[in-house]
């Protein structure tokens, strides 16, 4: 359906914006390495089903490889910055102080409690869906601490948040058209979108009106 296509396109767009930002500017100011590492973990644990070769569609498979590949590539580009732009790297590390163990622990626990089947594949999938819902927190924490961000960085966060928000009408659509109700994704998707809500509001008030992102 249209919502799901738009959501996936928004997800693709967010990654393209991020890659272009890092490659063009040759700096990583305001981008959280911790959030990017969490996304590598999210995609690697979610798409383990690639190894079972029970592929849903060519579209799904290609997208899965794309998300795993680009998330690893982003982390590599950011690590390269240690050599090519040490000032920017040090500045980023100085601000990227969110303790991710407070996300990893609870997500592992939630995966053990809420899952569709007690198998390695399903537990990893559940872990990834919980982790994705909170993976943006180090990035948002960094943003709130520095108080401002480059417009491109905010476009990246917006596109990334929009992707999960657009999955919500997709789930409503699928409930009525296929009687499909996949509770874990829906709950974590709502949680994820809620975490973005503050950001969305400021983005709408400031960036969309061309005023640049600055926190009150």
């Amino acid at each position: 359906n249209i919502f799901r296509i738009l959501a996936d396109l928004s997800h693709l767009a967010s990654i393209v914006i991020l890659l272009e930002t890092i490659r063009k500017a040759r700096q990583i100011d305001g981008i959280s390495l911790k959030t990017q590492i969490l996304y590598v973990l999210v995609f690697c644990t979610r798409y383990l089903d690639l190894l079972t070769f029970r592929w849903t569609s060519l579209y799904n498979t290609l997208m899965k490889f794309f998300f795993i590949g680009t998330s690893v590539y982003v982390v590599k580009l950011m690590q390269d910055c240690k050599l090519t732009n040490p000032v920017s790297y040090k500045d980023m590390m100085f601000r990227d102080t969110f303790q991710i163990k407070y996300l990893l622990g609870p997500c592992a626990l939630l995966a053990l409690v809420f899952n569709y089947k007690f198998t390695v594949l399903e537990l990893c999938w559940s872990f990834s869906i919980w982790l994705e819902s909170v993976a943006i927190l180090p990035q948002l924490f960094m943003l709130s601490r520095s108080g401002k961000a480059s417009t491109l960085t905010t476009h990246y966060i917006f596109a990334l948040g929009l992707y999960r928000a657009l999955y919500i009408p997709n789930w409503i659509w699928r409930y009525y058209s296929e009687n499909r109700l996949e509770k874990l994704s829906i709950f974590t998707g709502l949680l994820q979108t809620a975490l973005y809500s503050d950001f969305f509001y400021i983005y709408y008030r400031k960036v969309m009106k061309g005023r640049g992102f600055e926190l009150p």
Binding site: R4, D8, H11, T56, N60, K64, W125, N170, R180, E182
Partner: peptide, 10 residues
């Protein structure tokens, strides 16, 4: 069939 499509989203 329902089960196979459980994770058909990204």
């Amino acid at each position: 069939n329902q089960k196979q499509n459980l994770h058909d989203e990204l």
